[in-house]
Amino acid sequence: MNVSSAPAGTASPYRTLAAAAPPPGRIEVVEFFWYSCPHCYEFEPALRGWVARHGDEIVFRRVPVGMHPRQLPQQRMFYVMEALGMDQRADRELLHQIHDARRPLDTETALAGFAADAGVAGDRFHAAWRSAAVQQKVDAATRLHTALNVTSVPTVVIGGRYVTSPAMLGATLPMWGQTPAMRHEATLATMDTLLRQARQDSTTR
């Protein structure tokens, strides 16, 4: 999949993929993330609010990345929790334990302990961890972030063709006095614009 880019030396708030226009109806919005990424953790509340505001217009999903070996256990854990029926409370507790309680939780053994704290028996956890269904979802996630040329997190893809992130917006803002809140606000504003554009694309498909 080809990607259009801004002229050399020019920072852009987003990039456009050479992809087909999204189908009519609700627009898919995908967040690529990694549980241990501090920038993902900082962005999560703002993104959650944005998703809530646009809930009737979008289909939102999160995709964990596995770009580096150290990301692979937590990428798999996302789909293990899904297979075990662990809900959003478990997802947020995992984030809390990693970022606030300073627990690494980046190995199968450590993540099994986290699941055990949530009441999941070890045999169920390890069976899900090794299941073909979870492996298929891990492989699909890796294929997707590779195809979309996602190289950092958090990254958001709107309508399958518009890619943006707080890092991209940060590069367009004055560096002096820049804060995460400023980057998040600018990112959400850009996402609003890209959502409108994706919706327009879908009507001219």
Rank of each mutant, 00 (worst) to 15 (best):
M168R: 15
R26S: 12
A181F: 07
R205T: 00
F125N: 10
G160V: 02
T193G: 12
Y41C: 09
R62A: 00
A101S: 15
E42L: 11
L72A: 02
V30Q: 09
R62N: 02
A20F: 00
P24G: 09
T10Q: 06
G159T: 02
Q135M: 08
R130S: 03
A18F: 03
M175E: 14
P23A: 15
Q136N: 10
R196T: 07
F114W: 11
R53I: 08
R205C: 01
M182D: 07
P38R: 12
L84Y: 08
E108N: 00
I27Y: 02
P22T: 03
Q135E: 15
R62Y: 00
A118K: 14
F125W: 13
P104E: 13
C40T: 08
L95G: 11
L47I: 06
F78P: 01
M191C: 08
S152K: 09
L95Q: 12
I158E: 10
M182N: 04
L94W: 11
R15P: 06
R76Y: 14
R15H: 03
H39Q: 11
L84P: 14
V59C: 06
A121Q: 12
L84W: 13
E93L: 07
M175T: 14
C37E: 10
Q197W: 00
A116W: 14
V51N: 01
L47N: 01
V120F: 10
A11P: 12
V63G: 00
S165F: 07
T142I: 12
L72Y: 06
A83P: 10
K137Q: 10
P38F: 15
T190N: 13
R53T: 07
T193A: 14
M182W: 05
